[in-house]
Amino acid sequence: MGYNRSIRMPSRLLQALSTSVGTKFLIAFTGLCLFLFLVAHLAGNVLFIAGPGPFNDYAHGLVSNPLIYLAEAGLLAVFLVHAARAVMNWLTNQAARPDRYHVRRWARTKNPVSRKSLASTTMIVTGTLILLFVVTHLATFKFGTYYETPDGIRDLYRLQLEIFSQPAYVAYYLVSMGLVFAHLWHGLSSAAQSFGVDHPQWTPRILTLGRVLTVIIAGGFLVLPVYTFFLSRPA
């Protein structure tokens, strides 16, 4: 009898994406897109080590491709959706517990031990700071000083060398990459759970895999400014 009264299957996908479960799917999906961007971004940036030629050629290849505008627009959209949904979601969650506990401890004495960590509790903080970082990052690089190579393409190599010769920038990037590290530490495996991956053997492996990837990606980004810094000072 129950269902006859009101069959409420979500008629449109959009509607389904607005519930708590749908929201998390969106956050996870966009989060994973952002992660893939980071992978690609890191792969490209690693060319810095290969020297000015390959690095500048690669960067030029990217910006001169007409598809870049589409890709950038997509990336922007993904960023915005991720951030907007994450913030709205956070607000919902705050409202779900208006009165705080006077004493609250993590369930460490229990078994299984939870996945709660400093990273998981600060997702909104690290996320927001990452957003601010990206704005400054774009100002520094994308809209930064335009040097030209003798070949007439943009000399990003020089820009990066200049920027990271300044200890303050290096420090700022190190801290920011720490934020990325924290965000992904919880975020990657969490996304798997949001997609509904559950398997007695694979779930623990995914948890580990997420952390390994985090170390690789955030680690890679950590290394670059440091590497550039030392490169910029003649030995």
């Binding site: 708590s20 929201t23 969490s190």
Partner: peptide, 18 residues
Amino acid sequence: MDEEGFGTCSNEGECEAV
């Protein structure tokens, strides 16, 4: 669940532990 005003899941697993 949403209508009742519960929050969403951040996959922290505190629930499972307690």
